[in-house]
Structure formats: structure tokens, C-alpha cells
Simulated assay, not measured.
Amino acid sequence: MSSLPSRPRASLSLPTLLSLVALFTMLAGLALAPTLVAQGQANRTGKQIYDAACAACHGPDGRGMPQSTVGFTVPVADFTPCTFNTREPSGDWAAIVHDGGPVRAFDRLMPAFGEALTWDEIEKVVAYIKGFCADKAWPRGELNFPRAIATEKAYPEDEAVITSSILMGGNGSAANKFIYEHRFGARNQCEVIVPYTMANRPVDGWSSGIGDVALGAKRAVYHDLASGRILSVAGEVVLPTGNRERGFGKGYTVFEPFVSFGQALPSDGFFQFQGGMEIPTDRDHADEAFWRIAVGKSFARGRFGRTWSPMVELLAVKELEEGVATQWDVLPG
């Protein structure tokens, strides 16, 4: 029986072997290039990301480039004023970086970087931008917890608010308040509250008028972003501007000193406290102590959608006279 012919052996010269090794190494490097680039981007600092993605319009110092450089007439945001930089929480800034200006009602010229930057990079660049406000006396917007119905927040605000309430019992009434809050300096706020009431009186029917106007001031004495805490001292003077006979005012001045405290809780929860006294100038009326607590949680529609913050308030009032019981109330909001 004849044997099968043997298969010839392939032999590689040393130069050919070295060439194949070099080719394999090159192909492996090309395959790993995207991973290496991504790792390099992940290791970039907030400044490096800002310089690469933001400085062309907003300038290397955060003050914004001139119109002649950017080529459009829409003003570019200046990140350096602390009154602008600290007002909103970092989450709102991240939403604009991720989805572009329209997500927070800014111009479409602010592009979206959600596909160009990772979430970690967006957090880094927002933290860097927040650093353009070098004065740490300004409380950050993360400590501006949702407004409760009765409990005064500790954060110094800069806004105008109109509130309304309707009393269905008795003869019926509708109460409105115009609240103007103006922030000045890093920690301070002044306030004007103008109530306007419509009431159905048994004698002469419906009537309306301005109530007792209040003037107030607030100062944040402590705030810490890392712990999520803010503490303020405040005071109001309620003036007898309302008509007492028609039920729109008390007829005497009331001083109201108080403290307000806010605490961030896990999972977007929050706790707020207000405690103080009402001291009437008419000494026929007793001084009152009051304390109010609001606890709630914020829910957002999607990552950057509208936020809903349900809460419940526990209210207590006690006249500082012997034998007078504390009055308690629960207020959902």
C-alpha cells in the first residue's frame, strides 16, 4: 500500500514574521483607538472641557465673547456675576448643556451637547462654570427649596409672587397677596407684602380693600452646599393699613421676628422649618409663638422636565398666656 504524499511545511523568514507582528500590532491599536480616546476624554478636567466646548462663545474667562467674534446678535451669558451664577441649581445648568437653550426657555443658539459629552463631563464643566463666582458668601440655588404655603423659606429670593385663597365657609371671602422680594448683596433680602381681600359682610354685602401691609428683611447667616443646609434670621413689621371695621386689618402694628431653616433630604426630599413670635404693640393682645414645618419631595418629568413638589405642613400657634392651649393644624400642599 502506497503512502500518501506528505503536506509541505510553510516556512516564514524572520523579516516576514516581524512584518506580520507589526501589522497585527497596528490593527490592534486601531481597534482600541476609540476606547483610548474615550478614556482620555473621561479624564479631562472641567476647564479642559470648557475650553474645548464653551470658550469659543462664552470666552476663556466666562464673560462672553463680543458680537464681532461670535457672529450673532443674541447676548452671550456672562457667568461671572454671582447673582446670576448661583441663582439656579446645577441641575438646571446641566439640562441646558445636555439639551440646549430651549429646554429652559433660552435661545436656540445655545446648542445641545448631550451627544458630544458624557454625563460625567457635563457635571465637570458645570462645576467649573459655577467656579466663575469666586465669592462663597452666595448661597447656591440647590438650597432654594420649593415654596410652601405658610412656612417661610430660608433662601433669600428675588421674585414677585401672587397668592390667592378662597374661604367657602361663613359668608365667603377671597384673600390675595402680592409679595415682592428683592435680594441685595450675597445673603440679604427685603420684602413687601400687600394683602387684598374681598369679603361678603352680612350688613352691606361684598366689599374689598387692602389689608395690613408687611415690610420684611431676611439674612442667610449660614449655608453649606455639601450638607444641604441653610439658616436665616428674619423679621417683619405688619402695619395697620387695613380697615379694622370692615375686617381688613387688626388696627395695630405687629412685630414678627423669626428664624428659617432648610435641609435637603435624600432622593430629592426637603425639610423646612420656621419659628418665631408675633409681638403686637397693642398690649391688650397677647404675644404669640409660632412654629411651622414643611416636608416634601420633588418629582421631575423625565430627567429635565417640569418638577412637581408635593408637601405637607404642620402648623402650631400658642398665645403666651397661662392656660392657653397650643393650636395645631395640618396643611397639605
Score class of each variant (00 low, 15 high):
Lys218Met: 09
Val221Ala: 10
Gly211Cys: 03
His182Ser: 12
Gly209Cys: 04
Val238Arg: 12
Ala220Asp: 00
Glu245Trp: 05
Tyr196Ser: 08
Asp212Ala: 01
Val194Lys: 02
Ala234Tyr: 02
Ala214Phe: 07
Leu215Ile: 13
Met198Gln: 08
Arg187Pro: 03
Asn188Leu: 06
Phe248Asn: 04
Asn200Thr: 05
Val238Lys: 12
Glu245Tyr: 06
Val203Arg: 14
Glu245Ser: 15
His182Leu: 11
Gly209Ser: 08
Arg183Met: 07
Phe248Met: 00
Ser227Gln: 15
Arg219Phe: 09
Ile193Arg: 08
Glu245Asn: 14
Arg244Trp: 00
Arg201Trp: 13
Ala226Ser: 14
Cys190Lys: 11
Ser227Trp: 10
Tyr196Met: 06
Glu236Tyr: 15
Ala234Met: 13
Asn243Phe: 05
Gln189Asp: 07
Gly185Ser: 03
Leu215Thr: 08
Trp206Gln: 09
Thr197Met: 13
Cys190Gly: 15
Arg229Tyr: 01
Glu191Asn: 08
Val194Ala: 13
Arg246Ala: 11
Val221Gln: 12
Ser207Thr: 12
Glu191Leu: 15
Phe248Lys: 03
Arg246Asp: 12
Ala234Thr: 02
Gly242Arg: 01
Pro202Tyr: 09
Gly205Glu: 12
His182Gln: 00
Phe184Ser: 10
Asn188Arg: 12
Phe184Val: 08
Glu236Val: 10
His223Met: 01
Val213Phe: 04
Ala214Val: 11
Tyr222Val: 10
Ala214Gly: 10
Thr197Trp: 04
Ala234Phe: 02
Arg229Ile: 14
Gly235Val: 07
Gly242Ile: 00
Ser207Ile: 06
Tyr196Lys: 06
Arg183Gln: 14
Thr241Phe: 02
Pro202Phe: 05
Pro202His: 11
Gly205Leu: 13
His182Phe: 13
Arg244Met: 08
Gly247Trp: 02
Arg183Asn: 09
Val194Asp: 06
Gln189Tyr: 01
Asn188Asp: 15
Ala199Asn: 11
Ala220Trp: 04
Gly211Ile: 00
Val194Leu: 15
Gln189Lys: 06
Thr197Phe: 09
Thr241Leu: 02
Asp204Tyr: 15
Gly216Trp: 07
Asn200Ile: 04
Leu215Trp: 11
Asn200Phe: 11
Ser227Phe: 08
Arg201Val: 00
Val221Glu: 12
Gly185Ala: 00
Leu239Lys: 04
Asp212Trp: 04
Thr241His: 04
Arg187Trp: 08
Gly185Asp: 05
Arg187Lys: 15
Gln189Ser: 07
Val238Ile: 13
Arg244Thr: 10
Arg183Phe: 04
Pro195Ile: 01
Gly216Asp: 02
Ala226Arg: 15
Ser227Tyr: 06
Ser227His: 15
Val237Asn: 06
Val192His: 02
Met198Ile: 10
Arg187His: 13
Arg201Cys: 01
Val203Leu: 15
Ile230Met: 02
Gln189Cys: 10
Pro195Trp: 01
Ala217Lys: 04
Gly209Leu: 01
Val213Asp: 00
Val192Thr: 13
Asp204Leu: 12
Phe248Ile: 03
Gly216Asn: 09
Tyr222Gln: 08
Ala217Arg: 03
Pro240Arg: 05
Gly235Leu: 08
Gly211Met: 03
Phe184Arg: 05
Ile210Asn: 06
Glu236Leu: 14
Asp212Phe: 00
